[in-house]
Every structure is written in C-alpha cells, then in structure tokens.
C-alpha cells in the first residue's frame, strides 16, 4: 500500500509538470503585457509632468510627444535582433559548425529568421497598442501615405540594424562573452534608438552622435515620419540615407565576419 502511494505521488508530480510548462508561456504573455503597461505608464506620467507648466518643448506639443513616445514603444521590436545571444548559444553548443557547413548563405538565413521574428513580435504588440490607445489616449496617424513611408523606412532601418548587430555579434568570436555584451548593446540602443526622447529635443551635437550610429534608423527615423515630425515630402531623402546605411553596414558586417570566423572556438557540443 505504501509503495502504491509512493508511486502515485511520483506519477502525480510528473502529471503536474505539463500544465506548469503551458502555464509558464501563458503567464509570460500576460505578465509581458502588464510590464509593457508599467513602462508606458511611467513614460506618460513623466512627460505629463514635463509639460505641466509649458505648452511646447522643442516645438512639440504634449500630444505630439506622447504619440511619438508611445509609437516608439509599440514599434520597439524593430530594434530586437537577437544575434549576439544566438551566436553565443551556437558557440557554446557547437551548433555554429553545422550552420557554417550548410549549403546556404549563413547571413541570409539569419536575416530571414529575424524578419520573421519581427513580424511575430509586432503582431504580439497588438494588445499593448490597444492598451496605449484606450488607457493613454494614443492618437493613431490615419494617412495611408504616411503609413507607407513608415513601412519602407522601418524595413530599411531594421535591415541596417540587423547588419550592425551582425558586426557586433562577430565580436563574440573573440570575447566569448554574451550576456554583458548583449545588455551593453541593449542599454545603448534604449537611448540611441530615440525611443526615450524625440531627436528634436536633443542638442545639435547629440543629434549628430545619435544619427551616426545605426540604432536611430530603426526607431527615431521611421517613427518621426509616422508622427509627422519629419514631413512626408522628405521621405525619399530619408529612404536614400537609410539605403546608404544598409549598403555600408552590409559591406562592413560581411567583411568583418570573413575575418572573425577564423577565430571561432567552439566551447562544447
């Protein structure tokens, strides 16, 4: 009888594991929504306090700034490229050897994978977009031409950033460090992408610095087009600049990869 009870208790524990796994994913989704809401709430209250005694900051009204900030939060997945962590994982597990041997362009494979992840992440942002609209009064742009200009700019910006991340991820071939490097890049991207403050509020020298690093191409540049901070008439010039970024970063990342890949030291697998 005691043995039966013992066996039952073991099987019950095993039975309980699967619901825990399912619950973990569900939990992450809902808690992610709450965390995003907290992040947005802090920004909204902060900006409302900034505008408490003034109607305009750097020629932007409170509504314009809030629209920019909230849209920048919603489209923040445009900066989510996981190459550093992926490279680190593949080095640790030894999978990188298999990827390098496959008869397919390694960089091309990763680009398509990251583009697909971006689509999924943007779809998963729909609930937070609803929260931003209902809770924080986000006013969505309605002009289809503006959305078209934004879509082209966002894709170009994401592509430029992908190649920049590719360049940074190649550093893991030398350092083997992943976590710190990943957090360092994320920390830099928070400000340099323009997701916390519109570029127009920055002093001239800081704008120059921010615009000479690719992070801003993925958030500040497309979201400024979407919110009208950058007039629609300037869209072709914006795209051309971004295209130059894409070409430059593609060349630099591909060349650096050819050099860095010789340093690959697989740690396990």
């Amino acid at each position: 009888m005691r043995a039966l009870r013992r066996d039952l208790s073991i099987y019950l524990s095993i039975f309980g594991m699967t619901p825990k796994v399912f619950m973990a994913y569900q939990l992450w989704f809902w808690i992610g929504l709450v965390l995003n809401t907290i992040g947005m709430a802090i920004l909204v209250f902060f900006w409302r306090a900034v505008y408490a005694d003034t109607d305009s900051v750097a020629a932007l009204s409170l509504q314009q700034t809030l629209t920019y900030i909230l849209l920048a939060q919603i489209f923040f997945p445009l900066t989510d490229v996981d190459l550093i962590f992926d490279f680190g994982f593949n080095l640790r597990e030894g999978n990188i050897i298999h990827f390098l041997l496959r008869p397919i362009n390694f960089q091309g494979m990763y680009y398509v994978q990251n583009l697909s992840s971006l689509m999924m992440r943007l779809i998963l942002q729909i609930p937070i977009a609803v929260v931003a609209t209902l809770l924080f009064g986000l006013q969505w742009p309605t002009d289809p031409a503006t959305w078209g200009a934004f879509a082209v700019s966002a894709l170009l910006g994401f592509t430029a950033l992908f190649f920049f991340h590719w360049f940074l991820a190649c550093l893991t071939f030398y350092t083997t460090e992943v976590w710190g490097l990943g957090v360092l890049i994320f920390g830099m991207s928070l400000f340099l992408s323009g997701s916390l403050v519109p570029l127009t509020m920055m002093p001239g020298w800081l704008q120059t610095v921010v615009l000479s690093i690719p992070f801003a191409q993925a958030i500040a540049v497309p979201v400024s087009l979407l919110t009208g901070i950058t007039p629609l008439i300037q869209a072709p010039l914006v795209w051309l600049t971004q295209l130059a970024w894409v070409t430059g970063m593609w060349l630099v990342s591909a060349l650096f990869f050819r050099v860095a890949v010789r340093k690959v030291t697989v740690q396990g697998g």
């Binding site: 920390g187 830099m188 340099l192």
Partner: peptide, 17 residues
C-alpha cells in the same frame, strides 16, 4: 574581459536613462 563588459553593461543601461 567578461568581468569588465558585465560591469560596463549596467552602466550603459543607466546612462541611457
């Protein structure tokens, strides 16, 4: 190098804000 990058990473995160 990892130790230094790790310590620097949180500095970058705070510097942004």
């Amino acid at each position: 190098a990892n130790f230094i990058i790790g310590a620097l990473s949180t500095i970058a995160l705070q510097a942004s804000s």
